[in-house]
Design a protein around this nucleic acid. Structure first.
Lengths: 172, 172
DNA sequence: TGGAGCATGTAATGAGTTACATGATTGG
DNA sequence: CCAATCATGTAACTCATTACATGCTCCA
């Protein structure tokens, strides 16, 4: 019963108690949103298929048709199996690089413009991560808890360094 | 007529002459495969919809039902528009980080094992990029031509550095 | 007290992957 | 000349995003 990554993550988030789909989606975005996108619809779908597979159970419909979902023992087992497995290979999909490939068609000014926009986005992202980092440091949270954040930091720093080292005629 | 990135890239590859879908898919993987996955089926589909939109035309069926596709003027225009636009935001999806989030469930040995596997994959990828880099340097290809490769190098180096700086109890 | 905005769910569409079928080539 | 392999295309399926509908809440 090979869980897909999204399903695995949802189970992970369900371990600590029952949640409604809507809230689960929000939670997912807060916790793993920086490196894994999950939309509401996906949550509904995955919960439905997982319920069919007996990995979660949904309670009665409440106020707005709302249901609380809860992980089952089978769900915990599936989660454990998923988390223990090798992570599936990561395929980067980086739209910037894609366009860059065709950069000759863009002319230097066009290229610079596109690059500048992107660099700014990366800078923003980095700033966000750094803010979060400061919070965690201040709160004395142990390093082991922000490994993912550190990855994000490393990634954004590498990206910015790459922008900084562009050949002069392209550098924004 | 907002092209999606895959379609845009395919048009880009078609600019220099007609190609058959199969070959186009292969070509895409060679050129942009490191940061953009394209499967054969996608190529067929995108070509079909682009043909319907008048961006490409397919010739007569040859030997094995094979058709040569060719970019049209409208196609060139659409390509130019696409390439000039801001790149769509990149959403990273990094399975490793996803699992890492739930690392507490894994125990230190399990965690180390998963991490080691992944580090090795990154090391391989880096080695591949470096080999390619040496080729390009040897061939005297100007830097502006390997911007994407440099991004890949930067990314893999950052990833490896991150592995190296894991807290001792997790370091593989 | 009514309407602005948030919470919640469903439907429709688009994108990506896997599995499969079959026609050509070619080295043994 | 035939079996292994490559080339080529199609179909089925899974996953992801967008658009939409409607029910609550709460404060101007």
């Amino acid at each position: 019963m090979g869980l897909n990554s999204t399903a695995g993550a949802l189970l992970g988030l369900l371990r600590h108690g029952p949640v409604t789909p809507y809230r689960l989606a929000a939670l997912a975005n807060e916790t793993i949103g920086n490196f894994w996108t999950v939309t509401q619809s996906q949550v509904y779908r995955e919960l439905a298929t997982m319920e069919a597979a007996g990995l979660v159970v949904g309670g009665e419909r409440g106020p707005r048709g709302r249901r609380l979902y809860q992980i089952t023992d089978a769900g915990r087992a599936a989660f454990a199996a998923w988390v223990g497995q090798d992570p599936e290979p990561e395929h980067l999909r980086i739209p910037l690089l894609l366009k860059l490939t065709f950069l000759d068609d863009l002319g230097p000014e066009g290229a610079r413009a596109v690059l500048r926009r992107h660099r700014d986005l990366h800078a923003e992202k980095l700033a966000g991560y750094q803010a979060r980092e400061r919070e965690l440091v201040a709160a004395g949270v142990p390093e082991a808890r922000w490994l993912t954040l550190r990855f994000g930091l490393a990634y954004e720093r590498a990206a910015l360094a790459w922008f900084a080292e562009l050949p002069p005629e392209l550098r924004p």
